[in-house]
Design a protein around this nucleic acid. Structure first.
Lengths: 223, 223
DNA sequence: CAACTATTCAATAAATTTATTGAATAGTTG
DNA sequence: CAACTATTCAATAAATTTATTGAATAGTTG
């Protein structure tokens, strides 16, 4: 009886460690972060992370073997995607852990944010109220395809690289809350800085799209 | 600007990967699982996990460097403990991920549970209602010191190894819900089997103490 | 402060992980 | 079905992780 219990534990811990190990590499961390936004091809992932295609493929195989990502074919391309919500949930709780416990991470975030002067962030609860009340422009600054795959309810899309050109579409009278992927995505900082420089009432959302969706707050797809 | 963003990301992903890596070893997984119950000495941890003292110490150093555990001295002994709740939270979400996605883990749990025939488990919500209503005996079968460090509100303590001797303390008329550490702790299975054999109305709690406490459900300390 | 004891350290060998290169493969398109 | 292209594979070298052993250390107790 005791030995069976020991064997059971051994199996479980070995397997859980494999999952953690699959996450335990900087490149794979970044891949998961990216794939949380939706499916991407090996080529896109490689370009995004600055790795070679072969190396990217290797890391994707590791994630696939750990059953953290799955593939689907569309035409000539293979798309990689997370196998489920709890993959991102686990990733997010590691990020959370890092952000509260890891001195280096805290320092890096502080340093980076210090470069901008964007004031206080809007919390998810606060934003939810504002969305319900309808007295806010919610601005999605991610690339357009990510917006179409899913965005905060009633948000409008102006990707960061088009923001300067399309800034007139926004009103200077209404409050604007901008958001991007998550608490490690800094597109939103650039967006808010740009908006404020030009006299818009802009604030940033504290979390990102995925965290919003994970809370079960209202989202929309337009595919 | 772009390069700074890249550098920021690199730092963060490298650090997050370190945290994941610190969790990415079967022994360390088990250590975290144990430390979630409270502080323990190197010697105790070594005995519990079946490792040598030196090797246990090495693994504890890894966890300490990753800021997942911290030490405190009491008399001649050094006690190791988790640095915070989100360490267990991250561990638990990895466990959750394993339990839903990992075929080996699911198989191991099924096989092990199959050895017992304890019927359906009681969910946390269900148990909370029962506790409020007061029409249930909540039975903590963990070692007594873990009980004293914190237990489900109104639970009584009979460690598994004393259960046979002290079984008369329980009533055959009232429903008994037994629990132990968590969803990977199998003490509760043995306890429920024993109780049912002797004619008690026993069921098992689906989660464990830590998961209950993490939900913010009522607990008591008796130290 | 001497004796004691829990814990850590340093060195080492074996095992595993990682990135790179160039070739192979598998699937699609017309 | 031939040509094409995205992706994977196999081999390799360098780097990292792991367990073990025996010695060293740091802190406590009386």
């Amino acid at each position: 009886m005791k030995t069976t219990a020991r064997k059971f534990k051994d199996t479980v811990y070995v397997e859980l460690a494999k999952t953690a190990k699959a996450l335990g590499n900087p490149h794979r961390m970044e891949i998961i972060d990216l794939l949380a936004q939706g499916p991407f091809t090996v080529e896109t992932i490689a370009r995004y992370t600055g790795m070679t295609i072969a190396n990217t493929s290797q890391h994707l195989q590791v994630l696939k073997n750990a059953q953290l990502v799955a593939i689907s074919r569309k035409g000539n391309y293979i798309y990689y995607q997370l196998t489920g919500e709890n993959v991102y949930a686990a990733w997010a709780s590691l990020r959370e852990l890092g952000m509260t416990h890891n001195t280096e991470v805290k320092k890096a975030i502080d340093d980076y944010r210090k470069g901008y002067h964007n004031g206080d962030a809007v919390s998810a609860e606060e934003l939810l109220e504002k969305v319900h009340a309808g007295d806010v422009i919610v601005l999605d600054v991610r690339p357009e395809d990510e917006y179409h795959r899913g965005h905060i309810h009633r948000a409008i899309s102006i990707p960061l690289d088009q923001l300067q050109a399309r800034i007139r579409e926004l009103s200077k009278k209404q409050e604007i809350v901008a958001y991007c992927r998550g608490s490690l995505c800094m597109l939103v900082e650039e967006a808010v800085t740009l908006l404020k420089q030009q006299g818009y009432k802009a604030r940033k959302f504290d979390d990102g799209y995925k965290d919003w969706a994970l809370k079960g707050y209202p989202t929309t797809m337009t595919m």
